[in-house]
Amino acid sequence: MSACLRATQLELLEAILAAPGVVSSAGLEVYRRNVGASLASALAAAYPVVRRLVGESFFEEAAARYARANPSASGDLHDYGESLAAFLEVYEPARGLACLPDVARLEWACHQSHHAADAGPFDAAALRDVAADALGEVRFTLHPATHLMRSFHPIAAIWEANQPHRDGTPERLEGPDHVVVRRADGRVRVERVDPAEWTLLAAFAAGASFEAASAALAPGDAERVLAASLARLVRDAVICGFTLPAGNA
């Protein structure tokens, strides 16, 4: 089926995605420019902080090189650019900025959070109905817009300092950050959290039961985090629901 059509399309797409300098025509150049411009603007939209950190011309060059090596694999341009962090890790001109790949990962998490599906409200009544001896088996579900990030660099401070209304000076210059990215009222928020709380959420994200997730914390931490955080995490819709293994429902 469509053997000739397929060959025609493969040939044209190959010509459009070819490196600059390869034999071309005025018409082909229009498509090359369109494709280059779409990918460049998708990257610029997803990575505003990286762009601000490295400057516009540095970003443009890096984005063009990334785009040549990584053609789009989706009809939805919002899916484009996920592996920019991995690219920056080995991009020689960016060597001097060790935090850059993790800042890019944080921005990708923000981008995904922004475009994530909605979820219904947490069913508190259903949780109250769970028998006391089955509570340990509850598996909390993170909201689709919730993402967890941790880094040896102060990525939350760097991200915050490079928002449009800020002058770019981070409040902290070093130290690790444990970050929760969440969406509230349609706006993405980046919040630095207590490492124990982050560990608890990471366990939930991995599908651990409440009991197993609590056991992952240090003994004193478990009670402190559970008492201080759980209600807030539900209220802020970081957690949006829960499941029980069959037989406990």
């Binding site: 399309q9 797409l13 369109n34 779409s38 053609p71 789009s72 694999a73 009809g75």
Partner: peptide
Amino acid sequence: SVGARHANDLL
């Protein structure tokens, strides 16, 4: 798109 590569343009 063809061969799972996308131009994200109308060809």
